[in-house]
């Protein structure tokens, strides 16, 4: 009960403060929270949701899923064998530091404008943290564990799976980073080159001075970022329970 109070206390107070402080606001740029909430209901609980939010989410999900699959597979190959690692080393070092947003104009020129481009932007931007972390994790696979697997003649497939599972803490770290990046790339790519989607709609509202509607869009993107991060955390906590136990971060014993 006390923990719940701590968790909800400040957020509730902040929302209440915003509500009260903005209630009589006549500033066009800072509309009352009441108005924003009304706009939120009007805008997003309508076919705008289907027209703008669904395409955004679809691109995000597809782009992220492809990045995840490609990143894990490529990262595994690069981390496991010396030859592909030596071959791709300098290239990876370059992409490790290349800021993802500059890929947008490049892909715009290379692939052209369209649904695919936004998807490709998300994939190409989000794949690096996953790939690099997977490669690091696979490369750091515990030698003792691998030698045991070899001595007991475990089949190649089983051994690969063991390595991958052992690298899962790093894979999750990369995937978490990639999720945040995907959302940013989704919004930015829609702001820059779209006819639908959340980013596009918010910019449209802003350009047409529909300020409460714009605020409601900002709120929705914020909620989306928060919600997806929480969902990810939930999956991660379940999947990596063993790792917290192994590294002594788990206090309760089942």
């Amino acid at each position: 009960m006390k923990a719940l109070g701590y968790a909800l206390g400040l957020p509730a107070a902040l929302v209440a403060a915003w509500w009260v402080a903005s209630d009589g606001s006549t500033n066009v740029f800072l509309p009352p929270l009441r108005t924003i909430v009304e706009a939120f209901r009007d805008v997003w609980f309508s076919d705008t949701f289907v027209r703008d939010v669904v395409p955004s989410l679809w691109r995000l999900a597809a782009g992220y899923a492809i990045a995840l699959a490609a990143g894990v597979v490529l990262g595994f190959v690069i981390g496991r064998w010396a030859a592909p690692r030596a071959l791709t080393g300098p290239l990876l070092a370059y992409f490790r530091v290349l800021p993802a947003p500059v890929l947008i104009p490049v892909l715009l020129v290379a692939v052209g404008i369209g649904d695919t481009t936004k998807l490709v932007v998300i994939t190409v931007g989000a794949v690096w943290p996953i790939l690099l972390n997977t490669a690091d994790g696979v490369r750091a696979a515990d030698e003792v564990g691998l030698q045991c697997a070899a001595a007991y003649r475990l089949p190649r497939r089983t051994r690969h799976l063991l390595v991958l599972r052992g690298a899962s803490p790093q894979i999750f770290a990369g995937a978490r980073q990639a999720l945040g990046l995907s959302i940013i790339l989704m919004v930015v790519s829609e702001m820059l080159m779209s006819t639908d989607g959340l980013g596009f709609t918010v910019v449209q509202f802003q350009r047409s001075f529909a300020i409460p509607q714009m605020w409601s869009g900002v709120l929705l993107i914020g909620l989306l970022g928060f919600g997806l991060a929480k969902l990810f955390e939930l999956v991660e906590r379940r999947a990596l329970r063993w790792h917290r136990g192994h590294t002594g971060q788990l206090t309760e014993r089942p």
Binding site: Y6, A7, L8, G9, L10, P11, L14, F29, G180, I183, I184, V187, V188, M191, V202, V203, F205, Q206, I211, M214, W215, G217, V218, I221, G222, G225, F226, L228, A229, K230
Partner: peptide
């Protein structure tokens, strides 16, 4: 720390670029 941790957890994953449309006005 206890009182603010949930708020920080909420605010952190909010992508900062959502501020662009808001800030452009001022």
């Amino acid at each position: 720390r206890r009182a603010t941790s949930s708020t920080l957890d909420f605010l952190r994953p909010v992508p900062s670029i959502v501020l662009i449309p808001v800030l452009v006005l001022v």
